[in-house]
């Protein structure tokens, strides 16, 4: 069965870029969200076992989204994908429970490496 994943970013260009950077032949069912609140709704309906999450977004940003996921113990493994590459941003999202951090612009090699590292893909 296809793995439900979410790509959450306010930029449609960034969502497409992320979608294109997914490993080839990875059997996934992708849901797109344009801000954190949409992503949380999607996770609650079981659409986001894995989520690629941007940080700077309107409505609910990436930090806020991670906080809710942590507080409500929602079933989603989050990989942050952001242009905010300050060391502090990395530490903050790790503390909030993010699995890992991928710097923008994304490329398939890095995505594949992270997914392999956490045993998501073989």
């Amino acid at each position: 069965m296809a793995l439900p994943i979410i790509i959450c970013d306010d930029s449609s260009f960034a969502r497409k870029q992320m979608n294109r950077a997914l490993p080839e032949n990875w059997d996934v069912d992708v849901t797109f969200a344009s801000h954190g609140q949409e992503a949380l709704d999607a996770i609650k309906s079981g659409k986001g076992e894995i989520m690629f999450l941007d940080l700077t977004m309107p409505v609910l940003d990436g930090y806020g989204t991670l906080e809710v996921i942590k507080a409500q113990d929602l079933p989603s493994m989050v990989i942050v994908v952001s242009g905010d590459i300050q060391p502090e941003a990395y530490e903050r999202v790790k503390k909030l429970g993010a699995l890992d951090f991928i710097k923008k612009p994304v490329d398939r090699e890095k995505v594949t490496q992270v997914l392999t590292q956490y045993g998501v893909i073989g």
Binding site: A14, S82, I85, Q86, K104, P105
Partner: peptide
């Protein structure tokens, strides 16, 4: 906007 977002992130870093 996304290109700017990535660029400003590097500058901020």
């Amino acid at each position: 906007q996304e290109v700017s977002n990535v660029a400003m992130g590097r500058a901020a870093d």
